[in-house]
Amino acid sequence: MAGILEGRVAIVTGAGRGLGREHALELARQGAAVVVNDLGTTLDGAGVSVGPAQEVVDIIRASGGEAVANGADIADFAQAAALVDQAISAFGRLDILVNNAGFVRDRMLVNAGEDEWDAVIRVHLKGHFAPLRHASAYWRAEAKEGRQPLARVVNTSSGAGLQGSIGQAAYSAAKGGIASLTLVAAAELGRYGVAVNAIAPSARTRMTEGPFADAMAAPEDGFDRMDPANVSPVVAWLASADCTISGRVIEVEGGRICLEEGWRHGPVRELDRRWSAAEVGDAVRALVAESVDPEPVYGA
């Protein structure tokens, strides 16, 4: 039986290990031709190697699928353009972009260095923007030529970006930015046949084995809820033509799927004049009492 992505072409960034690897393998199982992107760095972003990406390509090809390796730095604007061009030249089109690449440099805010902040924001946030920018330009050009795309983008946010995470100020800020980028891209690109969504995954990867070591323990019921492969079927569906939602963030952990509701307008107090400073306190306290309590920050 054909998969739900038969005949489609996908790029998966950061696909040499962890979640990205599982995404690439699942998309290939579902019939997509995959450009497997990975810079091959260490957890903190050092070094370069095409080996991890090529290993995933070899697995896909051995299973009868189509794949090519790419070692681009996805936060480099020109290299991100070349990544999109490679998909089109190798497979004749581009239908799916899965933005997954990232790394961590965890620090408490008072100890965070400027270089660490810049590196994390660059890889996560600019590393989403640059491939998305070039893929969007391609899809817009296709639409203007009368070849309306049926394209899908899956970004990678995080609970850290939605609820915050102690010791991860830069990472949380970047992932929150990715959630907002998803909303804007969905609104702007719908006219070109592009649906844009994001996932907020919880899984066992190099990035999480430190902070969430307790959650990585072997399950008593035999279901490994932290296996990164649990997340990838959701990504595959979001990448499919059957997915018609856009601008949403879906949290995935094990067999749990949660549609995030994000920032919403809550209770209101309004005057027909300017507020005085002395009045604001009582009004805000009343609003807080009427509102839903926010999710706790991870690690609090």
Rank of each mutant, 00 (worst) to 15 (best):
M1F: 09
A2S: 14
A2G: 04
V9I: 15
I11T: 02
H23I: 11
A24Y: 11
A28R: 07
R29Q: 13
V34A: 03
D38I: 05
L39R: 14
T41R: 14
L43F: 05
V50G: 10
G51Y: 10
P52H: 10
Q54H: 04
V68D: 03
D73T: 13
I74C: 08
A75V: 05
F77C: 05
A80N: 02
V84T: 08
V84E: 04
D85C: 00
A87K: 00
R93E: 08
L97H: 03
R105N: 02
V110Q: 13
A112D: 07
R122G: 02
H124E: 07
P131V: 10
R133F: 14
H134K: 04
A135S: 01
A135N: 00
A143Y: 11
K144M: 12
K144A: 13
A151K: 10
V154L: 09
N155T: 12
S158T: 08
G159K: 11
Q163P: 00
S172A: 15
A174W: 03
A174T: 06
K175Q: 08
A179E: 13
A187C: 02
E188Q: 14
L189R: 01
L189N: 10
G190C: 10
G190I: 11
R191C: 11
R191D: 14
V194I: 07
A198R: 01
A198D: 04
S202K: 13
S202I: 13
R206E: 15
D214Q: 13
A215T: 11
P219N: 07
D221N: 01
F223T: 06
D224R: 07
R225I: 09
N230Y: 07
N230C: 09
A239N: 06
A239D: 04
T244Y: 03
T244A: 04
I245S: 13
R248Q: 15
V249H: 03
V249D: 05
I250M: 12
G255A: 14
E261F: 12
H265N: 09
L271K: 15
R274N: 08
W275S: 07
S276P: 00
A289V: 04
V292I: 13
D293A: 15
V297K: 00
